[in-house]
Design a protein around this nucleic acid. Structure first.
Lengths: 332, 332
DNA sequence: CCCGTCGAGTTATACGTATTACCCCGGCTG
DNA sequence: CAGCCGGGGTAATACGTATAACTCGACGGG
């Protein structure tokens, strides 16, 4: 009734356990005869043998498993990061285990207890610096994605050219004649917020006006925050630069509620190029982030670190995708 | 340089390895003095000791880890299923490892090799029956979510009242006067498609007209499929029942392209109540599925199976959410 | 005829943990 | 004073695997 072990297979094939291990581990060239190997494989298949991963991991001292820490899986961006990481992992016979870090509804507090798998390394995505250092202290190699490269504890970094993305979108809007901007950002602190806010104000001042509003990373949260901002006294902004497509979708809804037309009265831009960006009307002008590439590079970096190989790579490029949510500034 | 083991802790605390294990495993009431326990804990903390999970799993013969197989993580529905499963798992000191089954871009073929963790059981969500039976053969307890309850190999099932959801949405549309329906479904075969198609045709015939179109589960795919369907000769449908909010979003875009107004000229309904449903304009009338609840029940079912406890539960209820994408049938 | 070599396996061991069975000692009981 | 008990801890072991070290014939060369 219990699962068969390599010893059971050995007994069935009339050989020793070591031979089973050699054959199934593909290490038998010249050590075991073709005929015996066949017998072993047949016995294994017949019994439905599966090696016990726990035992193997213990013996080998490595698990070929990485932990990927993401803020929230329901965000398509991170799902895509995972996809990329898992693809590279699979190519190197690695596995990836997820830990959605506490966003309130997530699982328990301790990633390493929660992800019960034995791990070889950790990849952490888009975490605030202090949350990361909390991860750092336990001796596993750590790769940080989309995070402050000066933060301590990381063996490698993978970053996106966020500042450049902000530059592209801003210049696009400036070229369209916009001069009054609203920066709509996620309420959650992150390194990329700082980067983008900085790039934005550097590009705009002193020729243009900039206000910043932060909102929960949901369509609804962005809508209400934007409504409030647009209803504020003073000259209305003509362009809203959002740090996320989700926020941009909310901004568009706010505009519609207030009777403003996008893009005629108000231009809105997003970030990420999620499926959402082309689901809404008008489709969002946004900055496409190579999310899967981020995951791929993160896993590659971790593999390099585990190998002792030095790893370094430039920031991943991002591209502006112009769609229907931006247009010339209203001449008024 | 290598990670400290329980023996290292024992040496540092001046006790035996067994004592360390007892103390850290909280099994020392009456077996170890308070003072010694303190020493052990202090030594462990000082060395940064983390028990080796592989060794523990091997010793205990259980991993307290489940594999969750989902079709695609980028779909918010499955991300929420995972969230629910992980929450219940965490409450029972279990972990959940994901395996996004091959959607083309996914990782390798064999879930059990790919998810490298040693497993206690498997939860498979919304899989076609044949894909599931391929999973079945390896001796692990299997819980099926949202799948054909007559399929062999499952130790337990968790299902949604999909037929009832279809009934609710159909009656809503019938009450609004609609008589010509288009059923827009995912191109991927699934048990729930059959269920809903069946419910729909039973409710509509012979009083109303029904056509079925299947499309890739993307906004773009749904848009092009819907455009083609609406351009087809014959009387245009006045209501499109979609099996997914993503499809509904695509259908709305198709309508707009053809100059049809939603809901004035055409009513559209979705399924799932994703964030997308309230991101688009008009917001989607849809059937809300308790996705997290599905994950929670799935994990609970697996825990029960592992316990030997019988497990059974009625289908999870679903609720119609009426929003702006449905309205009275055009009087024409 | 003896030794080296090679082919085809086997025996033994270690990985780090949890737990069972045991040990020792001081104090209480009869 | 022998016997017993219980508190406080230790020694030994098993989990299933991978692999290094070894064995055992047979064979070929010198």
């Amino acid at each position: 009734m219990t699962r068969p072990t390599s010893r059971d297979v050995a007994a069935a094939a009339g050989v020793s356990q070591a031979t089973v291990s050699l054959v199934l581990g593909d290490k038998w060239r010249g050590r075991v005869s073709e005929r015996t190997a066949g017998l072993v494989r047949e016995a294994a298949a017949h019994l439905g043998y599966r090696p016990n991963l726990a035992a193997r991991n213990l013996r080998l001292g490595t698990t070929r498993t990485a932990l990927l820490v993401v803020p929230a899986l329901t965000n398509e961006f991170f799902a895509r990061v995972y996809t990329g990481a898992a693809r590279v992992a699979a190519a190197h016979d690695f596995g990836v285990v997820l830990y959605p870090s506490p966003d309130g509804t997530g699982p328990a507090r301790d990633p390493f207890a929660s992800a019960r798998a034995a791990l070889d390394g950790v990849i952490a995505s888009s975490m605030a610096t202090d949350a990361l250092t909390a991860l750092g202290g336990d001796g596993l190699p750590l790769v940080m994605l989309d995070s402050d490269p000066t933060a301590p504890g990381a063996a490698a970094h993978v970053n996106l050219a966020m500042a450049d993305g902000t530059r592209q979108v801003t210049e696009h809007l400036l070229a369209l004649g916009h001069r009054r901007f609203l920066h709509l950002a996620s309420a959650v602190d992150s390194w990329t917020f700082d980067i983008r806010a900085e790039a934005l104000s550097a590009l705009l001042s002193p020729s243009a006006e900039l206000r910043t509003v932060r909102a929960p990373l949901t369509v609804h949260g962005a809508r209400t925050a934007t409504e409030a901002a647009l209803a504020a006294p003073g000259d209305r902004p003509t362009a809203i630069v959002c740090d996320d497509d989700i926020l941009a979708a909310g901004a568009c809804k706010a505009a519609r509620r207030l009777g403003l037309r996008v893009p005629d009265d108000l231009s809105v831009t997003g970030f990420d190029d999620l499926a959402l960006a082309t689901a809404v009307e008008p489709e969002l002008t946004t900055v496409r982030l190579p999310a899967e590439r981020v995951g791929e590079h993160g896993m590659a970096a971790l593999l390099a670190v585990l190998d002792g190989t030095p790893w370094t790579a430039p920031d991943l490029p991002v591209t502006l995708v112009v769609r229907g949510s931006t247009g010339p500034a209203p001449t008024r």
